[in-house]
């Protein structure tokens, strides 16, 4: 096996994400847009926004990952890139993981870095550590992208697969969303939550690539 196909898939995914002008700004715009709709919908009372803010950011992050992932494998099925990968001599699971990781780098990590700004807009308390919050959103986003990648690979041959990805991936998002919101809430009895969040992300990284590989072999048939 050689690492060349893995690196080229990684570079190709990065290029895809930056193509089309807006690049990584597009998911950021979606994330911010989804988040700022909330005060318009539920009202602007600062205490309430402070309470719901961290949770809203988790929901916006999950939605952004689903929107981003819809076409990551579909294009490869259509233009034949998938068939080349399957003959490339590198493990398909590693290629799928590299691609998903590249999409997290361009569409997940920027959201995590932007989360302190949105947290401030949601009236976060001054003593809340926004940077550790950003770390939690980054870790949780990585798990979201890998489970969402399983849904994307399974529905790679399905026209309008976006809603299907959401239905498939949402139950898999549950542990990460729960541990993540506990970790950023900082409430009593949640000291283990950051570790559990990291564990759920590691679990996704360990399991999802093999499921994606099996699903991509199916998509290529």
């Amino acid at each position: 096996m050689s690492p060349a196909p893995i690196l080229s898939a990684f570079r190709q995914a990065l290029g895809e994400a930056w193509a089309g002008g807006a690049g990584a700004l597009l998911p950021l715009g979606f994330f911010a847009g989804a988040a700022v709709l909330v005060p318009l919908g539920i009202g602007t009372e600062p205490g309430m926004l402070r309470a719901v803010g961290p949770g809203i950011l988790w929901v916006a992050l999950a939605l952004s990952s689903l929107v981003t992932l819809e076409r990551i494998f579909q294009a490869d099925v259509e233009d034949g890139a998938l068939d080349l990968w399957l003959q490339a001599g590198a493990p398909v699971s590693a290629i799928a993981a590299a691609k998903t990781f590249a999409h997290w780098l361009t569409a997940g990590l920027p959201l995590a870095l932007m989360s302190p700004v949105l947290a401030l807009m949601f009236q976060a308390d001054a003593d809340v550590n926004l940077l550790s919050g950003a770390l939690a959103y980054g870790l949780g986003g990585l798990a979201f992208f890998f489970w969402g990648g399983v849904g994307a690979a399974l529905s790679a041959t399905v026209r309008r697969g976006g809603l299907l990805i959401a239905l498939i991936a949402l139950p898999l998002y549950v542990p990460t969303a729960i541990f993540g919101s506990m970790a950023v809430s900082g409430a009593a009895g949640t000291t283990a939550a950051p570790l559990l969040l990291a564990a759920s992300t590691l679990f996704a990284l360990a399991v999802a690539p093999f499921a994606m590989a099996a699903a991509l072999r199916l998509a290529a048939d």
Partner: peptide, 16 residues
């Protein structure tokens, strides 16, 4: 594939 991915996630979902 989906049923198996779901099954290995069930204990984690339950725990969370």
């Amino acid at each position: 594939i989906l049923a198996m991915v779901g099954a290995i996630n069930v204990p984690l979902i339950k725990f969370s």
